[in-house]
Write a protein that binds this DNA or RNA. Structure first.
Length: 451
RNA sequence: GCGCAGAUGCCCGAGCGGCCUAAGGGAGUGGCCUGCAAAGCCAUGAUUCGCGGGUUCAAAUCCCGCUCUGCGCUCCA
């Protein structure tokens, strides 16, 4: 079974499955009030690869990721744009899925929306009040964190340290019994969307939705809960607090990935427009970002600059070039030793840098075999490499449909070369390049592909 | 202030006590291949791992101190 670092225990441990052969995963999705950015991109790619890998190992994965469709940021965004909060949600949820499609990220099995779960959230809050873990204030309902066992487990800090906090912070909600208490329900203010509750109209606090939705769709004691390092505290801590307060089994394993670091001035000024996934995929091969993510370990901070993106883009082109020349037979035998090493790396806390290492080494060996004319071996290496690439979520080996007029030009060039009319041949190649096609001469004749 | 993560070649980034004269990718340089290219292959590139101490037969890897960077500390992926 895969071993993963568990934030709750601060050590790498096997992922224990509640049900044999079944993996239940909950990933905190976005609050939809803006386009997805590179941080979201890393987030979804890391978990997409985890999911694809688990599936490739024959596991039955149930993957849930929510959409937070009601929240202060959404309300503020609507006010700023002079539009309705529902329009904001509609626009940016669409942008979210568009971005994920471009990155070739699999859709979740379930996509719960916060606004579809308000009744269940009200029920949960009522339960918390009933067991004296939550209380009423004039602006909402709060949880009493002092009554929650292990509060601060994920943050790895004592309640006191959390409270002392940074000097210039404003403590909101002065009626709170403890500074760490957080809102479960916020009473409505004029002009804000609201839902009914026994305590007054209002809307749910951010942390409640994920508890309710994960437990509803995956059940108590589900296997894995994941998100970015920034969600560890307060969001995940507070989700957990609610479940713990009610004596419920929550996520058994917690996984958090590191941040994307945009190298200061360069990224924000000269290429600040790369911040969003939409713009990223317009400027680079979307697979380049996937590769860049995989080349560093998910828990490490990762530097993204124009240069690192270009590097990854060039490396992806190498994968394509390899597929063009290898002309892989999908039925070819796989190198069992290499696959075993690959699986071992992935099982070792998702060691994707090692996996990528194995992939490129395999590609080099396949290329060597092609150069040496050892066809059986070339096929085997190529098939192995392509299988690894597929598990990592790379789409390779797509055959371009070459238009008739391009084929015709290529044909003329073959003739010219046969006649040793190289001037004419080069002219035809330039023409093909102009039309957006590349022609590469190989032992088996020219290979045409889109630039 | 408290806590977390990080500092490795030109760039990114693995390694976490001996197999490290440090993986993999990108860029560079030289060569092979090619009519020329492209693609590919080969070679080359840190005797050194932020700085200063220490532990050890042995440290990039462990301990202590320092410097710098990113992040969290209440509603922000």
């Amino acid at each position: 079974m895969i071993r993963l670092y568990n934030t709750a225990t601060r050590e790498v441990a096997p992922l224990q499955l509640r049900d044999e052969n079944k993996v239940s995963i909950y990933v905190c999705g976005p609050t939809v009030y803006g386009p997805p950015h590179l941080g979201h991109g890393r987030h979804v790619l890391v978990y997409d690869v985890l999911r694809r890998f688990l599936i490739s190992q024959g596991l039955d994965v149930t993957f849930v990721s929510n959409i937070t469709d009601i929240d202060d940021n959404i309300i503020n965004k609507a006010a700023a744009d002079n539009t309705s909060w529902t329009d904001v949600v509609k626009e940016y949820e669409q942008a979210w899925w568009d971005g994920l499609d471009k990155l070739h990220v699999m859709r979740p099995d379930h996509i719960p929306h916060a606004t579809d779960y308000v009744d269940e959230m009200v029920d949960l809050i009522a339960e918390l009040i009933a067991v004296d873990k939550a209380y009423l204030a004039s602006d909402g309902i709060y949880i009493a964190t002092e009554n929650v066992a292990d509060y601060g487990l994920l943050a790895n800090q004592s309640l006191e340290n959390l409270v002392e906090g940074g000097g210039d912070r404003e403590v909101v909600g002065t009626e709170k019994k403890h500074a760490a208490d957080f809102a479960l329900w916020k009473f409505t203010k004029p002009g804000e969307p609201s839902w009914p509750s026994p305590w007054g109209d209002g809307r749910p606090g951010w942390h409640t939705e994920c508890v309710v939705m994960s437990l509803d769709l995956l059940g108590e004691g589900f296997d894995l809960h994941t998100g970015g390092l920034d969600l560890m505290f307060p969001h995940h801590e507070n989700e957990r607090a609610q479940a713990v307060a009610l004596g419920k089994q929550f996520a058994q394993h917690w996984m958090h990935h590191g941040f994307v670091e945009l190298s200061g001035e360069k990224m924000s000024k000269s290429i600040g427009n790369v911040m969003n996934v939409t713009e990223l995929v317009e400027r680079y091969d979307p697979r380049a970002y996937r590769l860049l993510i995989l080349q560093s370990h998910y828990r490490s901070p990762m530097e993204v600059t124009e240069t690192t993106l270009q590097n990854a883009d060039a490396a992806v082109k190498r994968l394509d070039a390899f597929v063009r020349r290898s002309d892989c037979d999908q039925n070819s035998e796989i190198d069992a030793d290499v696959m075993e090493a690959f699986v071992a790396a992935m099982n070792d806390d998702l060691d994707t840098p090692k996996a990528v290492d194995l992939l490129f080494t395999q590609i080099r060996q396949a290329n060597q075999a092609v150069d040496d004319g050892v066809l059986a071996q070339a096929q085997r290496c190529a098939a192995t490499a392509i299988q690894m690439a597929e598990i990592l979520g790379f789409e390779l080996g797509r055959n371009d449909d070459v238009p008739a007029e391009i084929k015709e030009l290529a044909e003329q060039r073959i003739q010219a070369r046969a006649n040793k009319d190289f001037e004419q041949a080069d002219m035809l190649r330039d023409k093909l390049t102009e039309a957006g096609w590349r022609v590469e001469d190989s032992a088996d004749g020219p290979v045409i592909s889109r630039l």
